[in-house]
Amino acid sequence: MSNLPTRREPILEVDHLNVRYGNFTAVRSISFEVFGGEIFGLLGPNGAGKTSSLSAIEGLLKPSAGAISVCGFDIASKPLHARANMGVQLQATSFQQELTITEIIRLYSRIYDVNLTDAEIHERLAAINLTDSINKKIAQLSGGQQQRVSLLISTIHDPQLMLLDEPTTGLDPQSRRYLWDRIEQFRDKGHAVLITTHSMEEAEAICDRIAIIDHGSIIAIDSPAALIENNLTNPAVLEVVRKGKVTLEDVFIGLTGTAIRS
């Protein structure tokens, strides 16, 4: 949890969002807000609607109903303004494999209208311990290094909102801890962070609030501690407790069920 007081200004507002694919409704009228100085976790089993919600927030798909605004800019009517205020880290580090890290940073800095000199690029790479990889191509880096570059690019324009889609999947504990620190630093500067993850440990460690989404609907929304506290006597949760003490994972499985999703 951040020690700094939370700024109660919604950076992201999602209002009755619906996403449909033909006859299938992936997201059913979900609403939530993410405030400045907050890390908000979106948790859910596979196919629950996390990625569809995130894609709608990123402006990659058009919602069938509802509204999304980032820093007051409606994603439907002012998509460029909304996207200019968000930094996105996708699940895979999707950069041109033929370009060097410096070239990729330069490309994205120009896309976000940020003028960076060679010295500034060097400085930013030094901050993520990658100065010796300055002329390497992205494919030549380890998974952890690629995620660091991806995070650097996502925050190159100092966005108000950071969207992270399962950012620590496949990372070793050191790289994961490093990424958590960077995300918390970002939150502590007053920015808003929306993160999706399957790791309950991660959600408990860094999220200030969590929304559990299942079958396209939000079924619980609160701080990790409050979610545990509120479900201490929930029979569905108690049924799945494994180590005598209710954890966030127990709450998650208790609320979403034990059936394996596709």
């Binding site: 303004h81 200019a84 370009l99 330069r106 490309l107």
Partner: peptide, 27 residues
């Protein structure tokens, strides 16, 4: 905070530089 939207010409120029470099590396 000011919202910075780059000009289409600036974006096109950045993309062209990246795409020509990619083409050259795949020569």
């Amino acid at each position: 905070m000011e919202t910075r939207i780059p000009k289409n010409s600036a974006i096109l120029s950045a993309l062209l530089q990246a795409d020509f470099t990619t083409l050259w590396r795949n020569r």
